[in-house]
Structures are given as C-alpha cells and as structure tokens.
Design a protein around this nucleic acid. Structure first.
Length: 274
DNA sequence: AGAGATACCTGGGAGC
DNA sequence: TGCTCCCAGGTATCTC
C-alpha cells in the first residue's frame, strides 16, 4: 500500500506530468471517503493550474496557482492516474479532475481511506493546518539519533507505535517501521523511553537507508505513471520480516513471530531483535 | 500529556 | 457453492 516511498514517487510523477496543467472541470462519482469529496466540486477549481508538488509524510500537497493547495493522502488503496478521460471509469475511481488537454487526474480508492481536499495555506509554502503538528521528515537532517533520543525520553509505550506516530517522525507506516526495527536489531516491544542513544542512532540511520532504498525501487515500477499501486513496487521483494511470520529469519534462522502491538500486526525476529 | 481502543471501508481468504 | 467472519491499513476521535 502507499507509504512514504510510494507517496514520494507519486509526487515526482505528478510533478512531471501535471505541473503547469490547468484544471478544466471536476467530476465526482462517489463522494464518501474519509472526508466527503463534495466540497471539491464547489471549490472553484476550474481554471486554476498545478504550480508544484510537495510531500509531507505520506501526504502529497499540490500547490495551485491561486495560492490554495490540493491535499492528498492515499490511504491503503489509493491510486492516481493521469490519462484520457474517455477511458471508462473503473469501479472505485471516485473523482476526475478534468485537465485542459482531454486527460484527467483520476483518483481511485477501493477502501475509501484516502483524502482529497482543497486547503488554504497559512502562508505561501506552508503546510495545511492538519499537518502542522507533524514531526521532522525522516529523510531530513532534522531527524537523527539525537532528535529521536530526545523525543523518546519519558515515553512508556512500545517503540513501534512511537516510530509510527506522525508527531514524532512523519510518514513511517507499519511496513517500514517493522523493517526498520529489524534492521536496527531492536524489538518492537521495547518501551521507547528505555532506548539507548546508540539504538536511536541506529534506528534513525536504518530509517533513512530503508526509505531511500524503497523510494529508489518504487521509481522503476511507475515509469509510465499508470499503475502506482505500492504493492507492485520492487521493494516488496526486499522485505525481511514484514509478512514473513512463521518463516525462518534470513539472518539467524529463528522463527519470525507475529504479535499485535498498538493494534497493528507486528512481525519480528526474537533472535535478532532485543 | 500520553496511551490505548475504536470507527471508517472493501476485498480476499479461511472456515464451516 | 455460499455464507459468515476476520483481517489488512492510516488517521481522527474518543476515553481513561
């Protein structure tokens, strides 16, 4: 499903094919999503152009020529395509933003966990209010072992939900949190506040390495910008523990176990992760 | 403030 | 075969 690396690849692809392109019309087919789509139709988007594309965590922010922004989140099944509006609508395509060249920005979401909404920005280049509490970007210098160590002090909850908290670091989801903690050799059950500084340095470093690698591999799967479903990204082949419960660990041979932590399925290797 | 539970939604798979 | 049940996922919102 789309996580940060997939959102980054979607951002890059949209920037390539949509920057400068004008919206000619809005067509909504099924308004019910995480937030209703109906306001999109009344937002007066006709005639505005896509000025640029940014990303914050798993959100992609499309800056519009009128100073507003189109905020998008892909939930767990969101897919965007830019192709002819004449291609018959797929079952779960909920909205078309018609473009001035006969194509459409087509938003598909099977499980309706996605977000697509128009936002005002607090200042030019700022982020919509709902993203204001987000912590640092994992690939930025602001996120490092020291910052993670400081943020974790006093936290009694498990490290895995801590790492998945957008306010701590933006955009790390279940799959990548699982893989990062395996690579760092840290059990997902460890209380965040008990991590050593050295472990925080390792977790931050592995976060950057794994996310950068996944962005690199995700890029190749969407070259034609048709199918941006994260499940088809090549990083899936490099997962070491996620989805491998019951199978032997590739490093030590121990059985990978699965446990619900913070309401999420978590796979880890009891031999490698302490 | 922080932690945990829950609702939202659909398709796919397991089990009967 | 068809039915029911459960699970997957991120986030907002609720309670404690």
């Amino acid at each position: 499903m789309p996580e940060l690396p997939e959102a980054e690849n979607i951002r890059r692809a949209l920037a390539r094919v949509l920057t400068g392109r004008k919206i000619a019309g809005v067509e909504i087919f099924s308004p019910a999503m995480r937030e209703p789509l109906t306001p999109l139709a009344a937002a007066g988007l006709e005639g505005t152009a896509f000025a640029g594309f940014r990303r914050r965590g798993r959100y992609v922010i499309a800056d519009l020529s009128d100073g507003r922004a189109l905020l998008m989140h892909f939930g767990m099944s969101g897919v965007v395509r830019v192709e002819s509006a004449k291609i018959p609508r797929r079952k779960h395509e909920h909205v078309f933003l018609h473009l001035d060249d006969g194509r459409a920005f087509r938003f598909e979401c099977t499980r309706r966990f996605s977000v697509l909404k128009v936002c005002t920005l607090p200042e030019p280049g700022g982020v919509p209010a709902e993203l204001g509490t987000f912590g640092p970007e994992p690939l930025s210098e602001a996120f490092n072992g020291d910052s993670l160590y400081r943020a974790s002090r006093g936290r009694t909850g498990c490290v895995k939900p801590f790492l998945m908290n957008n306010c701590v670091v933006a955009g790390i989801g279940n799959i990548y949190a699982t893989e990062i903690l395996f690579a760092a050799g840290v059990s997902p059950l460890r209380p965040a506040g008990e991590l050593s500084q050295r472990e925080c340095v390792l977790i931050a470093a592995e976060s950057k390495r794994i996310l950068a690698r996944a962005i690199e591999l995700g890029g190749s799967s969407i070259s034609d910008f048709r199918n941006v479903d994260g499940r088809e990204g090549k990083f899936a082949q490099e997962l070491e523990v996620y989805g491998r419960a019951g199978l032997p660990c590739g490093k030590c041979g121990s059985m990978i176990v699965s446990q619900r932590i913070g309401g999420r399925t978590s796979a880890f290797c009891p031999g490698c992760q302490k």
